[in-house]
Design a binder for these strands. Structure first.
Lengths: 188, 188
DNA sequence: GAACACATGTAACACGTTACATGATTGC
DNA sequence: GCAATCATGTAACGTGTTACATGTGTTC
């Protein structure tokens, strides 16, 4: 429902290939929307048919050609219309929390390992966001409206990651207490 | 992919009707998974066919009959198998952040209004979670494993909502500054 | 008498994921 | 030689949303 508009919003900021967009959705824009390359190429096709984006083929050396997409006037119009409509609520899909809900059914270590894996991802992502934030701090204030938009979305990513890590600390502590208790009660 | 297991995890904790589950996904479990009643009734049908849940029809007075579902032994087995597999990453779908990314294209007031609407939702949800947390604080420690599972998932909801509200404060401030600047430059 | 909470479902369609498919270049 | 990065796509299948459908009891 919103993926096409997520793509338009990214292109409005900067021209990009499908491959670039896929990387954005996996990294810098990962807290906004997630999408696979298959979906992105499909949507770019539809957006092109609708006349909301256009592209030019750019040759590179040492790398394959790429289609660099840009938003059209009609595309910006459509994006603005969409932005003015009330947005739907976010949809939450957190498999990890299903695991947490059922954690009493499995070995605590399983969940602790899972938490550590996801902790790494969150730390990498947070570090990445903090780097971008540091660049913003070097820019003169007040920011342009475009820059402010990007900054606000970035701040959401930072606060989100920090909150997740804070929770993970609590969770790991509680789960490890339990492992220790079990070890005390059943020493081998 | 995980909705059936989210349902199994909820039923493992407490028997419920499709209607009850829909409410859970809309309220107490809203930070774990979101699902509509249509999807839930459909999945309950599939889970029943697979033999992972069973139900009994309960008559009530003043209210229509309901089917109260419970997890079966096979269902618990399947849930445990799923819990032990590495979980996939969460999928993010936040239409509001697309709006933020494109906020320079629209009137700041539009976005501020949107933020205020979602702020209310978050505050209600946070208050609800804090109430449940207060009940936990009245329980004797250490918590049973089942209770600890629920508590951990709850804490995630609380930290998530708080982080969102913190961000909304920042965002509203930045956006309102801009409205004031505009008013100074173009007084009527 | 209107709106809301309770309660359960089907059907059509849109969206998203997984698997498949290809091919060049660079670093180990 | 193997894996990784760059680059773009199609096909089959599964998931999720929107619209439709129905009916009772309670509160304003």
């Amino acid at each position: 429902m919103s993926l096409p508009h997520a793509i338009l919003a990214l292109l409005e900021n900067e021209n990009a290939s499908g491959y670039d967009l896929a990387r954005h959705f996996a990294h810098s824009a990962g807290h906004i929307w997630s999408a696979t390359h298959q979906q992105i190429y499909l949507e770019l096709g539809k957006l092109h048919q609708a006349g909301w984006v256009s592209y030019e083929i750019v040759s590179q050396d040492g790398k394959p050609d790429k289609k660099v997409y840009g938003i059209t006037k009609n595309g910006t119009g459509e994006l603005i219309r969409w932005l003015q409509r009330p947005s739907s609520q976010k949809r939450v899909r957190e498999p990890l929390l299903i695991k947490v809900l059922g954690s009493h059914l499995i070995d605590s270590d399983d969940l602790i390992q899972e938490l550590k894996r996801q902790r790494e991802d969150n730390e990498i992502s947070l570090a990445h966001f903090l780097n971008i934030e540091a660049e913003f701090k070097r820019k003169p204030v007040p920011l342009s409206l475009e820059q402010r938009s990007i900054y606000l979305a970035l701040r959401r990513g930072i606060l989100d990651r920090k909150a997740w890590l804070e929770w993970a600390n609590e969770a790991e502590q509680l789960l490890e207490e339990d492992v220790q208790t079990a070890a005390l009660n059943e020493p081998d």
